[in-house]
Amino acid sequence: MPRRKLLRKVLSPPRVKGFTPLGEESHGAPVLMGFEEYEAIRLCDFDGYHQAEAARIMNVSRPTFARIYDEARRKVAQSFVTAAPLIFEGGRIYYDSEWYRCEKCRCRFNHLEKAEGPSRCALCGSGEIVPVKEAVRQEKPGHRCICRACGAVKEVLHGMPCNQVVCEECGSRMIRKGVRAGWN
C-alpha cells in the first residue's frame, strides 16, 4: 500500500464550483480539479509566489508542490483545448484562515473574508489589531566543507553535495569537514 498523502493547506477555496465553456451545446466529460490544484495555480500564477514559497504556504515539499502545480496546469490546458467543463472537487486538503491579535483585549481571532483584512477586533471592536505571524518551517542548518588542497573551510546550504563545491582559494573540489580522518 502506498504511503498516504499529506494534507495540503488551502487558504482560499474557489468561489465557484467550476467553469463551463461558452457557446457549446453539449459538453464532454468534465475535467475534475482538486482544491489543492486550484490553490497551487492561485498561489503561483495569481499571487505571484515562487514555487518554494508556495510549497511552504501549502505545507508540502517543493517537489510535491511542483507535481500538484504541473497536474493543475495540465488540467487547465485539457479543459481549454477539448472545451470540457472544469469542476473543482475533492483533494486531500484542510482549510486554514488568517489569525489576528487585538492589542487592547489581547484576544486572538481569525478572519474569514479573504478579499480584505479585518478593521476591528472581533471581540471588543477596537482597531488595534495585528496579524499573527505563522511559524515558518525552519530550514535545515547547512554544513561545512573543507578543501583538500589548501584547507579552506566554507559554509554551504543543507543538501549541497560537497564534491560540487569549489574552493574559493585554490579552485579545487571540497569534501565534508570533520568526517574523514587524515584530511580534517
Partner: peptide, 19 residues
C-alpha cells in the same frame, strides 16, 4: 486542528480569549 478547519469550511469565525 480538526475543529479549526471545520469552522473555516462552515464560515464561522473563531475568537480565542487570552485570560
Amino acid at each position: 486542528a480538526k475543529v479549526k478547519s471545520l469552522f473555516d469550511q462552515l464560515q464561522i469565525q473563531l475568537v480565542s480569549v487570552p485570560h
